[in-house]
């Protein structure tokens, strides 16, 4: 059971049970929906972006597995107040951590997001961890189309 605890770390379980920044907010100017047809996860990200490209507020709605819910919940906290550019960089490192080829540093510089480093061992679950991220990037790009992991 030790192995599986590396995936389902306490912080992930906690955020999946009580997701933060969950529910619709009145003030947001960008939104996007994402869907993972494989497990039926649905997520909707809402962002309040300032004119100079800072993510002043982020929240999410939806339903899904523990990994996808915790991923959405944790990212809202970590990314709040960051610039759009920084967000894209963080996503690149996050992706490298959960799905990159070869040896990758286990979440160095990713702070709290490093709890998802265990996902790497479970290729079938990478999409669960990245769904909220893809949806967030979609919202930032201002594209209306729903994101699908397939």
């Amino acid at each position: 059971m030790n192995d599986i605890r590396e995936l389902y770390q306490e912080m992930i379980l906690d955020h999946s049970r009580s997701p933060r920044n969950f529910g619709p907010k009145e003030k947001h100017n960008l939104s996007a929906k994402g869907h993972n047809p494989l497990c039926g996860d649905d997520v909707e990200m809402h962002i309040l972006r300032t004119t100079d490209g800072v993510l002043e507020d982020i929240c999410f709605e939806g339903s899904g597995c523990a990994i996808s819910t915790a991923s959405a919940s944790i990212l809202t906290g970590v990314l709040k107040g960051r610039s759009e550019e920084a967000v894209r960089e963080i996503f690149a490192s996050f992706r490298q951590m959960v799905a990159g080829q070869g040896d990758v540093p286990a979440g160095e510089g990713l702070g709290k997001l490093a709890v998802f480093s265990g996902v790497r061992q479970y290729p079938a679950r990478v999409k669960c961890a990245t769904l909220a991220w893809h949806t967030l990037i979609q919202a930032l790009s201002g594209v209306e189309e729903e994101v699908s992991t397939e």
Binding site: M1, D3, G40, D41, C65, A66, A124
Partner: peptide
């Protein structure tokens, strides 16, 4: 309060192959 996919991953660790979805 447990999503079938999380259950599926954990059960697979025990060698038990079920379908979640």
């Amino acid at each position: 309060r447990i999503h079938p996919h999380d259950a599926g991953t954990i059960m697979d660790q025990q060698g038990v192959a079920i379908r979640a979805g």
